[in-house]
């Protein structure tokens, strides 16, 4: 089956489960370990990631296919993608600040972090290397964002409960978080075989 035949909805669900951008592809690990201590802040960051990831992968798809490909400039994709992402994040930050102060207070602090979140750039790079169509890209971007959010919120929930548990001192913090992430990744592997997208 050709990649272009896969239904965008299938890609969306696969990106959440079998091909989870965090647990199967390891993207966005740094904020995942740093911000996953409280459910509330991880929901904030997760929402921001869903939004930015969806919009930037669609934007980058358009830029790549309508500007870079016709002029044979594919090798510039890294620079162009990162500029698009940084500019988009900046504009969204300014827009949110104007429109809704409360939303800005909730999401604002997470937005600058997002430019260097590898999940965002990774989403754009994966959709190029897998040759998705525009609709598929939208599904993939949205699904990846949701998958990332699901993982970080679940992780934060576990870590909130873990506070009372005793852990080997050397494993405290990132060490135990990685082990939990590993077990979560094992659970997500249970989905594999349900659908395949690449």
């Amino acid at each position: 089956m050709e990649v272009t035949d896969i239904h965008p909805l299938v890609i969306l669900f696969a990106a959440i489960t079998t091909d989870n951008i965090l647990l199967a592809r390891f993207l966005g690990m740094c904020p995942f370990l740093a911000v996953s201590k409280q459910v509330k802040s991880s929901i904030g960051l997760g929402t921001a990631v869903v939004f930015v990831l969806t919009c930037t992968s669609v934007l980058n798809w358009i830029v790549y296919n309508s500007i870079l490909v016709p002029y044979n400039l594919e090798y510039l994709q890294y620079i162009v993608f990162i500029i698009v992402i940084a500019a988009f994040v900046q504009i969204v930050e300014m827009a949110i600040e104007r429109i809704s102060m409360s939303l800005y207070m909730a999401l604002g602090i997470f937005l600058p972090l997002i430019t260097v979140n590898c999940a965002i750039l990774g989403g754009s790079l994966f959709m190029i290397s897998r040759k998705y169509t525009l609709l598929q890209t939208a599904g993939f971007g949205f699904g990846s964002g949701l998958g990332w959010m699901l993982a970080i919120v679940a992780m934060a929930g576990i870590r909130e409960k873990m506070k009372k548990a005793k852990v080997v001192p050397q494993l405290e913090g990132p060490g135990i978080a990685l082990i939990i992430a590993g077990i979560m990744a094992l659970a997500f592997i249970g989905f594999s075989g349900v659908m395949k997208i690449n």
Partner: peptide
């Protein structure tokens, strides 16, 4: 696969 990476790093 992925979990091995997490466990090894931990």
């Amino acid at each position: 696969i992925a979990p091995g990476g997490f466990f090894m790093l931990a």
